[in-house]
Amino acid sequence: MFKRKLQALGFPNPDTLNTADEKQFRSTIVWLEDQKVRRYKIEDRESLRNTTAEQWNQAFEQYLKDLDCPFANGSRPEIVDWLLGLAVQFEFNEKPESYTSSPKIQQQTSQQSNPLDNLDFESEDFKVGVVELANLLQVPRHPDHLMTLEGICNVIQEKLSQDALKEALKTKNPGNPVQFENISFGLDIKSPNVSSAANVLRYLFIHDLRDLQTKINECLVCVQALTANPKTDTKLGKVGF
């Protein structure tokens, strides 16, 4: 019921707001005050921002009184709906052109805006989503969830992009399997497990170097194709002095 207002305000997750969820309800109130309503000065918002405090309900009641909310004793959906309407009103007063422009201009604006700018990369919901995606793609998890996300992006780019999917449909020569036990990489490591890991890393490094060399050769071929048969404009030539 709040989706359209939340979308108009640029709320990070307009489809998942649940006023019955205590944590989500409190964080939404704090977001509205910090981002849109701004009834208090920044230094006066501490009691409202401390969503885990036992006195938060008292601070919230005082906040509604300061806003002259007519639904101070109403249900949570009524209070949230009124706060959203107030936030939309403030947003309109600050940027009326964003709501009165033509549909074509609004469409161009929405296309230019990056929805990722509204994400909270440190929220618990985001971290849980990264973990679930890593498990789905079988990407090893890093203690830093942003490093895990980077690994997920690499896997998607290499394995699930349109070019990668098209390439996967082509018939390839499987080649010969690599037997690391029979290859000497010049590393004298006593531990078998560490030696195997080092050999794999060395092999991947060599693979990347070969791929880089292939791309360099392709660039050289393109440059040679341009310089081997140059076109001459005879109109620019002169005879004599």
Results as ranks from 00 to 15, higher is better:
Phe185Cys: 09
Leu220Phe: 09
Thr214Gln: 12
Leu187Tyr: 07
Lys190Val: 08
Pro115Phe: 02
Asn118Gln: 12
Leu160Asp: 14
Gln138Ala: 12
Val155Pro: 04
Asn193Gln: 13
Leu204His: 08
Asp144Asn: 11
Leu204Asp: 05
Thr148Cys: 01
Phe180Thr: 08
Asn118Cys: 13
Glu150Pro: 06
Asn193Trp: 12
Cys153Gln: 14
Ser110Arg: 14
Ser191Leu: 07
Ile189Met: 06
Gln108Trp: 10
Lys166Phe: 13
Pro115Gln: 06
Val221Trp: 02
Leu209Lys: 14
Val194Tyr: 12
Leu136Cys: 08
Leu169Tyr: 06
Leu149Thr: 05
Ile183Asn: 04
Phe126Asn: 01
Pro177Val: 00
Gln106Val: 06
Asn114Phe: 01
Gly129Tyr: 00
Lys159Met: 08
Ile183Tyr: 00
His207Tyr: 15
Ser98Ala: 14
Ser195Asn: 13
Ala225Glu: 15
His145Ala: 05
Asn182Thr: 10
Ala168His: 07
Ser195Met: 11
Ala198Phe: 02
Gln224His: 11
Ala198Pro: 03
Phe185Gln: 05
Val178Cys: 04
Leu187Thr: 09
Ser196Arg: 15
Glu132Lys: 09
Leu149Met: 10
Asn217Lys: 14
Asn173Lys: 10
Asn173Glu: 03
Phe126Glu: 01
Ile105Phe: 11
Phe126Met: 05
Leu201Ile: 11
Glu132Leu: 11
Glu122Ile: 07
Ser101Asn: 14
Ala164Leu: 02
Asp163Ala: 15
Leu146Pro: 00
Val139Ala: 02
Glu122Pro: 06
Gln157Gly: 13
Ser101Ala: 15
Lys172Ser: 10
Pro140Ile: 03
Leu212Tyr: 05
Glu124Met: 08
Asn199Glu: 08
Ser191Glu: 09
Ala225Pro: 07
Pro140Leu: 07
Ser191Trp: 04
Asn173Met: 01
Leu119Lys: 07
Gly186Leu: 04
Ser110Leu: 15
Asn217Cys: 06
Asn135Met: 08
Ala168Thr: 04
Asp117Val: 11
Leu165Met: 09
Val178Tyr: 01
Val178Gly: 03
Asp125Lys: 00
Val178Thr: 08
Lys172Asn: 08
